[in-house]
Design a protein around this nucleic acid. Structure first.
Length: 500
RNA sequence: GGUUUCAUGGCCGAGUGGCUAGGCAGAGCUCUGCAAAAGCUCGUACAGCGGUUCGAAUCCGCUUGAAACCUCCA
């Protein structure tokens, strides 16, 4: 089997993946700032890296997956005064900061569950690691790469850049940045405008504040990820992931801080997913063009023609390579919905089939074709997680599977071994790795099934006496509540739940 | 203004030198009481202009257009 290759933003090329500790992988993914609701754009990294984790585990690695929750420390420019984003919003909603954080954390967890994302091994919060952050800042100061001004601490980028490669990840040149960086708050305090805050002094009215050697304040923009990743994954770990828009300044600053504090390039492989766009523009708060996940699921947004279920969104995202931009449109979502339904229906068909050869000759050409399509699946995943190609092959296999059921292709035409592989691979790739899960019936599945079998029998009887009015009524009314009957070739009737 | 990307058929999207994915939509056919589902068949696309090459969507140059980052952002 081919080796796993990952596109490493650090070197702008695909590289063969080897982990620091054989058999183990440490991965850190930048999680949400829980000061607001997650939108469609946020879903992309979580689903992208979910598949990464799933595939690494499938390959046999023991993966420690750390995904943080930022519940303090990010700033937004409002009235040219630096304020903690979480506290700003909390005052508006008249909630305690931690109450607000809890509310959006809960919603975020709920959404992750809807997407069938695997849970992180550790989900550290910024507020839970103030001490670690302060300790790290102290170390950076001791080494002479940070300075204090009036209760705030800044990282000395110019000094760092003299002996280190600042811009190594983002490809930026310090000289350019010195000229082009815009005027921001607190510039007068900084030695250079490219310097970034490690610790900010809290103004009197600020409600999120912690004591520190420099007075009461709160942690800076980027320090949490450096401190928490080092704590749980070590000063150098395997993979660091996040959205492309985090490359600069967030990840670049993480690298600089960690390099000084720990003496290591913090992560060996840097993976960045591309953005989801809407009408060609990035979906983002600044553009005011976001669709929240709750709105996606409910259809409660004027842009949406209908509601789109979490699996539809998952499928939509995975049909595109993670490093390409993905444009939102109702048409594309609906196409994804149809495609998902087709693949899932085929999967269910396949799991119910069993091989029954009878000594007749196999169709070598067909058998070979199936094997080929199956063999390519791991190669596609190994090629920087090309889920789009994995799906394409599953789609190519679908008519073959449906023909095995429909009788257009006889079961003996493929070998037993090939059939077993086919069955196993669909489970592995569609369910285990791509994470598609459509078990919508839940615990009452048996009861529902009983009711449906009764209706199916009633319809059968109606048809037998050519009472088509009754049989069509049963069929149509079931469809209107989201259950579609399928008349099979052999006279049996099956049903499927329509996703919406 | 600087940096970095991208431009594929009606729509969404794979794809780095020849074999020209896949999905959705559309057309025809098979099956069916009629449908649906399923199966079969049908589309020869790569922004424009040059260049390299036996051969380019794929490499190089220019032009045009779009985006991301440079500021919180997934």
């Amino acid at each position: 089997m081919s080796e796993l290759k990952i596109y490493n933003t650090l070197h702008r090329q695909k590289e063969t993946f080897t982990s620091i500790t054989p058999g183990h992988v440490g991965i850190y993914v930048c999680g949400p700032t829980v000061s607001g609701e997650s939108h469609l754009g946020h879903a992309r990294p979580y689903i992208t890296f979910d598949v990464v984790i799933r595939y690494l585990r499938y390959l046999g690695y023991k993966v420690r997956y750390v995904r943080n929750i930022t519940d303090a420390g990010h700033f937004e420019e409002e009235g040219r005064v630096a304020e903690d984003k979480v506290s700003t919003k909390a005052i508006l909603e008249k909630l305690e900061p931690m109450e607000l954080v809890q509310k959006y954390t809960n919603r975020y967890h709920w959404a992750m569950l809807q997407f069938n994302n695997v849970e992180p091994s550790i989900e550290p919060t910024a507020t839970g690691h103030i001490i670690e952050q302060i300790e790290m800042i102290k170390t950076i100061m001791e080494k002479g790469y940070a300075y204090e001004v009036d209760g705030s601490v800044y990282f000395d980028v110019k000094k760092y850049a003299a002996s280190h490669n600042y811009g190594i990840l983002s490809g930026r040149v310090l000289e350019d940045m010195l000229e082009t960086t815009r005027e921001l708050e607190g510039q007068d305090e900084k030695r250079n405008k490219v310097d970034f805050a490690l610790w900010k002094k809290a103004p009197p009215e600020h409600i999120m504040r912690w004591p520190s050697p420099w007075g009461e304040g709160f942690p800076g923009w980027h320090i949490e990820c450096s401190a928490m990743s080092a704590k749980y994954l070590g000063t150098q770990f395997d993979i660091h992931g996040g959205g492309m828009d985090l490359q600069f300044p967030h990840h670049e600053c993480e690298i600089a801080q960690s390099e000084i504090a720990h003496g290591d390039m913090m992560a060996r492989y840097w993976m960045h997913n591309n953005m989801i766009t809407i009408n060609g523009r990035k979906m983002g708060k600044s553009y005011n063009n976001t669709i929240t996940l709750t709105e996606m699921f409910s259809g409660n947004n004027p842009i949406l023609e209908k509601a789109y279920g979490p699996m539809v969104i998952r499928f939509f995202i995975l049909q595109t390579h993670y490093r390409s931009t993905l444009d939102f449109s109702n048409e594309a979502l609906q196409a994804a919905e149809k495609g998902l339904q087709r693949l899932w229906a085929t999967y269910e068909v396949l799991q119910k089939l069993s091989w029954s050869g009878n000594g007749q000759a196999i169709n070598e050409e067909l058998d070979k074709q199936v094997r080929q399509l199956l063999q390519e699946l791991p190669e596609f995943m190994n090629d920087d997680f090309n889920t789009a190609k994995v799906m394409a092959n599953l789609f190519e296999l679908a008519p073959i599977i449906n023909s095995l059921k429909g009788g257009q292709i006889k079961m003996h035409e493929i070998s037993e071994e090939t059939f077993q592989q086919l069955q196993a691979s669909w489970k592995t790739y569609l369910v285990d790795i791509l994470g598609v899960q459509m078990e919508v019936l839940g615990t009452d599945e048996d009861k529902l099934d009983g009711v449906l079998q009764m209706l199916i029998n009633m319809r059968k009887e109606a048809k037998a006496r050519k009472d088509y009015a009754t049989s069509d009524k049963i069929r149509n009314e079931l469809l209107s509540v989201g259950i579609q009957l399928k008349d099979e070739k052999d006279g049996t009737v099956s049903y499927s739940i329509v996703q919406d």
